[in-house]
C-alpha cells in the first residue's frame, strides 16, 4: 500500500534527464539561429565589401566613359561594358524566352507521358550543366575557326536561361485553373486559341518573373562568354557579330591583374553588376511572393 501511495505522488519538478533534454533542445535551437545569422552575415559582408571598395570610383564619367588602355593611370570608364552586356543578354533573352515558353507549353499542354520524360530530363540536365562546358561547346561550335563574336556569347547565355524560363513557365502553367482551360474548350475554342487567349494571358506574370530571374542570372554569368566574346573587344561595339566587351569577363580580367588600379576598376564594375543583379532578383522575388499569395487565396 505504501508503495502505491508513493507512486501516486508525482514529482512535478524536472529531473536531471528532463533538464538535459531541454538543454540539448536549447543548444540545437541556438545553432539553427546562429547558422541563419552566419548566412545573412556572409551576404552583408560580401555586399558591403563590394559597395565600400567600388563606390569611390563610381561617377557619371566612369559609367559612360571608354575603357582605359591597359596599364594606363587614367581610370577610364565602363560604358562599352554596360552596352555590351545589355546587347549580349538582350539577344540571349530574345532566344531563350520564346524557346523556354514553347518547351514548357509542350510539356504541360501537349506531350504524352512517354515524350514528357526524356524532354523533362533534358531540361533538368541542362539546368545542371556546368557553365564551363557550355563555354567550350560554344567555342568549338561557333568561335573556333572564326573570330570572337557577341552572338556566340548570347547563345551560351541562352543555354543557361532556357531551362530556368521553362521551369518557371511550367510552374505557372500548372497554376492555371483547369476550369478556365476546360471552359474555353467547352465554348468551342480550339487548342491554340485556348493557349493564346486564355492560358498564356493567365500565366503572363509568372513567365515575366521567371524571365527577370533568368536575366539576372545571365547578366552575371562569366564562363559562357569567356571564350566567346570580350577578351579582344576594347571599344564600344554595337554589332553583335563582333567581339563585345562585357562586364563579367572584364571583372574577371581585372581581378587577375597585378595592378591595384585594375582591382579598383573591378570593384566598381562589380558594384554596378551586383546592384543590377540584386535589384532584378529582389523585384522578381517580391512579385513572385505577391502573386503566390494572391493565387493561394
Amino acid at each position: 500500500m505504501a508503495a502505491v501511495e508513493q507512486a501516486l505522488t508525482i514529482d512535478l519538478r524536472a529531473g536531471a534527464r528532463a533538464r538535459r533534454r531541454r538543454l540539448v533542445n536549447r543548444i540545437a535551437e541556438a545553432i539553427a539561429i546562429l547558422a541563419a545569422a552566419v548566412a545573412v552575415a556572409m551576404l552583408v559582408w560580401v555586399v558591403w565589401s563590394v559597395a565600400e571598395r567600388g563606390a569611390s570610383l563610381i561617377s557619371w564619367s566612369f559609367l559612360t566613359g571608354d575603357l582605359p588602355i591597359p596599364f594606363s593611370p587614367e581610370v577610364g570608364g565602363i560604358g562599352p561594358l554596360i552596352v555590351g552586356s545589355a546587347i549580349v543578354v538582350g539577344i540571349a533573352t530574345a532566344i531563350a524566352l520564346p524557346v523556354g515558353v514553347l518547351i514548357a507549353l509542350f510539356l504541360e499542354e501537349f506531350a504524352s507521358n512517354w515524350l514528357r520524360v526524356p524532354i523533362q530530363l533534358a531540361i533538368d540536365l541542362m539546368t545542371g550543366l556546368p557553365s564551363i562546358i557550355i563555354a567550350i561547346f560554344v567555342f568549338s561550335a561557333l568561335v573556333y575557326g572564326h573570330a570572337e563574336n557577341g552572338v556566340a556569347g548570347s547563345l551560351g547565355l541562352a543555354i543557361v536561361m532556357i531551362p530556368l524560363i521553362t521551369r518557371a513557365t511550367q510552374e505557372v502553367l500548372r497554376l492555371v485553373p483547369s476550369d478556365q482551360r476546360e471552359g474555353a474548350l467547352a465554348l468551342g475554342a480550339s487548342r491554340w486559341r485556348t493557349v493564346v487567349g486564355v492560358i498564356l494571358p493567365a500565366s503572363l506574370g509568372g513567365i515575366l518573373t521567371g524571365t527577370v530571374l533568368a536575366v539576372a542570372r545571365a547578366v552575371g554569368e562569366t564562363a559562357p562568354l569567356l571564350f566567346a566574346t570580350g577578351i579582344f573587344g576594347r571599344t564600344l561595339q554595337l554589332n553583335p557579330t563582333k567581339a563585345m566587351p562585357n562586364m563579367p569577363v572584364q571583372i574577371f580580367i581585372w581581378s587577375e591583374s597585378p595592378d591595384p588600379l585594375d582591382h579598383r576598376r573591378a570593384w566598381a564594375t562589380a558594384l554596378v553588376l551586383m546592384t543590377l543583379v540584386l535589384v532584378m532578383s529582389l523585384v522578381a522575388r517580391i512579385a513572385l511572393n505577391w502573386s503566390r499569395r494572391n493565387t493561394t487565396r
Binding site: A36, A39, V40, M42, L43, V46, V47, V50, A216, R217, V219, G220, E221, T222, P248, I251, F252, S255, A270, L273, M274, V277, L278, S281, L282, R285
Partner: peptide
C-alpha cells in the same frame, strides 16, 4: 536573403 546569396555572380 539566403536566396539572394545565390544570386551574387560568381565572378564577384
Amino acid at each position: 536573403l539566403v536566396e539572394t546569396l545565390a544570386a551574387i555572380p560568381s565572378v564577384v
